[in-house]
C-alpha cells in the first residue's frame, strides 16, 4: 500500500519537477518564460506523435523534447533577438502552444499510446517497498533526478554556471565583461523548452498514455510557481515538486478513505500549501533578494 502511494506520488511529481528544473535555469539566466504550459503541451503532443510514427515511446520522448525546444526557440527569437516584453510573449506562447497542439493532435484524440516500459532488474526491482520505487521506474524519472543533480552541479560548481548566474543578476555588467549574454540566454531558454517538452511527453507517454487536448491542465503554471517556491534552488525544486505531488495524491487517498473534510478544500490544498510557503519565504526580504535573479524579466539589448 505504501509502495503504491509512493509510486503514484512519483508519477504526479515528475512532470512538475522536469518543467520546473528547466524553468529554473531559464530564470537563473534572467529570462522569465511564462510559456511553460504551452511548451509542455507541445511536448505532450510531440511525444505522442513521435510514438505514433515510430511505435517507440523513447523516440516519442525525444520528439517531445524537440517540440518543446522548437516553441522555446520561437520565444528566444522574440524576447532575445527582438527584445519583446517577456511577460506578454510568454503568455502568448502558452496560448499558441495550447492551440497548435490541439491542431496537431486532432486526429489522435482517444487513441492509446504505448506506455513507456519501466525498468525491471531481477531481484532489485522485487525488493519490498523501495524495489519498484528505486529500481522499477521509467527512464524519464531517472532523467528528472539526474537533471536536478546536473543543474545543481552546473550552476554552483562550474565556471559556465557562475557566468549564467552573473548574467541573470546583472546582464549589463556581464556584457561589459565580454560575456555573450544573448548566447547564454538562448541556450538556457532552449534547455528550459526541452525540459518542458520532456515533462509533456511524460504526460502523454507515462502518466496517461494518450493524447487529449489541453492535457497538461495547468501543470505548467504549477511548475512556474514551484521555481519561486524553491527560491531558484534545484534541491528545493525537487522538494517542492514532491511535496506538491504528495499533497495532491494524499488528498485523493483521504477522500477515498471517507475522511470527512470538504473535497473542495482538499483539492485546493496543494495550491494553498504553495501560497503558504511563498508567504513564508518572502518574509525574509534579504534572503529573497539574494536568491532572486536581479535581471529577471528585463529585456536586454547589447548595444544600448
Amino acid at each position: 500500500m505504501i509502495e503504491a502511494i509512493l509510486l503514484t506520488i512519483v508519477t504526479a511529481s515528475t512532470p512538475l519537477l522536469l518543467a520546473a528544473i528547466g524553468e529554473l535555469v531559464v530564470e537563473r539566466s534572467g529570462v522569465l518564460n511564462l510559456g511553460v504550459e504551452g511548451m509542455m503541451v507541445m511536448g505532450a503532443v510531440g511525444g505522442f506523435l513521435g510514438m505514433m510514427w515510430t511505435g517507440n515511446p523513447f523516440i516519442g520522448a525525444i520528439v517531445g523534447i524537440l517540440f518543446g525546444m522548437a516553441l522555446s526557440a520561437l520565444f528566444g527569437f522574440l524576447v532575445l533577438s527582438l527584445a519583446t516584453n517577456q511577460y506578454a510573449t510568454g503568455l502568448a506562447l502558452t496560448i499558441l502552444g495550447l492551440g497548435l497542439s490541439g491542431l496537431l493532435g486532432e486526429a489522435y484524440v482517444g487513441r492509446s499510446a504505448i506506455r513507456m516500459p519501466a525498468l525491471d532488474i531481477p531481484v532489485l526491482t522485487d525488493l519490498p517497498i523501495i524495489g519498484r520505487l528505486v529500481f522499477g521506474q521509467d527512464l524519464i524519472f531517472y532523467v528528472s533526478i539526474a537533471l536536478v543533480i546536473g543543474v545543481a552541479w552546473f550552476l554552483f560548481s562550474t565556471k559556465q554556471g557562475l557566468t549564467l548566474r552573473a548574467i541573470g543578476d546583472n546582464h549589463a555588467s556581464a556584457h561589459a565583461l565580454g560575456i555573450k549574454v544573448i548566447r547564454y540566454r538562448y541556450l538556457a531558454v532552449l534547455f528550459g523548452g526541452g525540459c518542458a517538452g520532456l515533462a509533456g511527453a511524460y504526460l502523454s507517454l507515462v502518466y496517461t498514455p494518450q493524447w487529449a487536448e489541453n492535457m497538461t491542465a495547468g501543470r505548467g503554471w504549477i511548475a512556474l510557481a514551484l521555481v519561486v517556491f524553491a527560491s531558484w534552488r534545484p534541491a528545493r525544486v525537487l522538494a517542492g515538486a514532491y511535496l506538491f505531488g504528495a499533497v495532491s495524491i494524499g488528498q485523493l487517498h483521504a477522500q477515498a478513505l471517507g475522511i470527512a473534510i470538504p473535497s473542495q478544500l482538499l483539492t485546493a490544498l496543494p495550491y494553498l500549501a504553495t501560497i503558504v510557503v511563498l508567504v513564508i519565504i518572502s518574509q525574509n526580504r534579504r534572503l529573497t533578494m539574494i536568491n532572486t535573479p536581479a535581471s529577471l524579466g528585463k529585456s536586454f539589448v547589447p548595444d544600448r
Binding site: 496517461t208 491542465a217 485523493l252 477515498a256
Partner: peptide, 16 residues
Amino acid sequence: KVVWVNSWYDPGAEAD
C-alpha cells in the same frame, strides 16, 4: 468509495 476531482476534464487528476 467516492473521490471528487473538482474538474470535468483533467486526464492526469482523473488517472490519479
